[in-house]
């Protein structure tokens, strides 16, 4: 249980979507935080039915916000994190050190490359020498100790003092590996401002979502939610894990003073009854600073069902 409390779920924010990639995290938030979210992973070439989707799990903004609020998770904003890491290298001495490091790597690579090349050349040379006595053609060099020389060449660092009659062209020897840039244009604008916030404390934009209070209200009572678009609402609300229960409600969130057409309530109520659910709508009462510890106001919910008469 202690480990469960300390666990912090990494929520990757990629292109405005909240994704969880760790299967243990997915299990954890499902068991302990009543969040089942939506599996989205599929093969791009062969998209499957949504019954067979896999990781990553995509959280709704409300769910991500709830995990951040309860301290059970943190948002890893890929973009801002990437940018902030990049811009630290723009600091002058870090940048110099980095460039120095790259140059050093380049020199090392160059040296290794030269050594390899010399070895290969020497090996070819020796093979040629070994072959030549059998063919009994006159060679440019006497090769009595070819084998022993080759043995030495394998372990010593030979000087590339090869005779000019070898077939290996000498000109190519100086085409050294360069450091290839990994991007074709600069990643950062030249005058970069320091990034706003560290990734772990970054909040979602769900705090401004009007449906967050209702979501929090339902989640705090142990209800699971799934996206409710298939019933024309914001959420389908389950009294437990959706594997075990049918949804009890289809839920919509409104603002406290939002004028809702009676026809919408009636049609949603009728649809809900038709699928054995109740239509739930709720709103947060504004100015509830005396009631909520976290500044959240009281949430009032109402359920509508067809009366059957």
């Amino acid at each position: 249980m202690a480990t469960a409390v300390e666990r912090r779920v990494r929520i990757s924010r990629v292109a405005g979507r909240y994704l969880v990639f760790d299967i243990d995290d997915v299990l954890y938030i499902r068991r302990h935080h009543c969040i089942c979210a939506v599996l989205t992973g599929t093969m791009p070439q062969n998209p499957t039915q949504n019954l067979f989707l896999s990781l990553p799990v995509e959280l709704q903004a409300e769910e991500a916000q709830l995990l951040v609020d309860t301290g059970a998770g943190y948002i890893a904003d890929e973009l801002t994190d990437h940018m902030s890491r990049l811009s630290t290298t723009m600091d002058e001495c870090t940048r110099k050190a980095y460039l120095q490091h790259i140059k050093q790597q380049r020199r090392n690579a160059q040296r290794v490359f030269e050594e390899e090349k010399a070895k290969v050349q020497a090996m070819h040379q020796n093979k040629r020498k070994a072959n030549k006595p059998s063919s009994s053609t006159p060679s440019t060099e006497p090769a009595p100790a070819a084998v022993t020389e080759e043995d030495n060449l394998l372990f010593d660092n030979p000087k590339p003092t090869l005779p000019p009659s070898t077939t290996i062209p000498k000109e190519k020897e100086f085409s050294l590996p360069g450091v290839t840039p990994t991007t074709s244009y600069p990643l950062l604008p030249i005058s970069t401002t320091p990034p706003a916030a560290p990734a772990s404390s970054a909040s979602t934009d769900a705090a401004t979502l009007s449906s967050y209070p209702l979501y929090k209200y339902l989640n705090s009572r142990g209800y699971y939610t799934t996206p409710g678009l298939r019933f024309g609402g914001d959420y389908s609300v389950y009294p437990g894990d959706p594997f075990r229960y049918h949804a009890h409600y289809l839920a919509n969130s409104y603002r406290w003073d939002e004028e809702v057409a009676m026809l919408d309530l009636v049609t949603s109520g009728r649809l809900g009854t038709a699928v054995k659910k109740s239509f739930l709508f709720g709103a947060e009462k504004p100015g509830g600073q005396q009631s909520g510890v976290d500044g959240a106001g009281e949430v009032r919910v109402f359920c509508i069902e067809w009366a059957g008469m």
Binding site: R300, F302, C303, I304, E305, W306, A307, M309
Partner: peptide
């Protein structure tokens, strides 16, 4: 037409 409206969470 008649619909029930309940105060709070009332299961269907």
């Amino acid at each position: 037409t008649y619909y029930w409206i309940f105060d709070g969470l009332v299961k269907p």
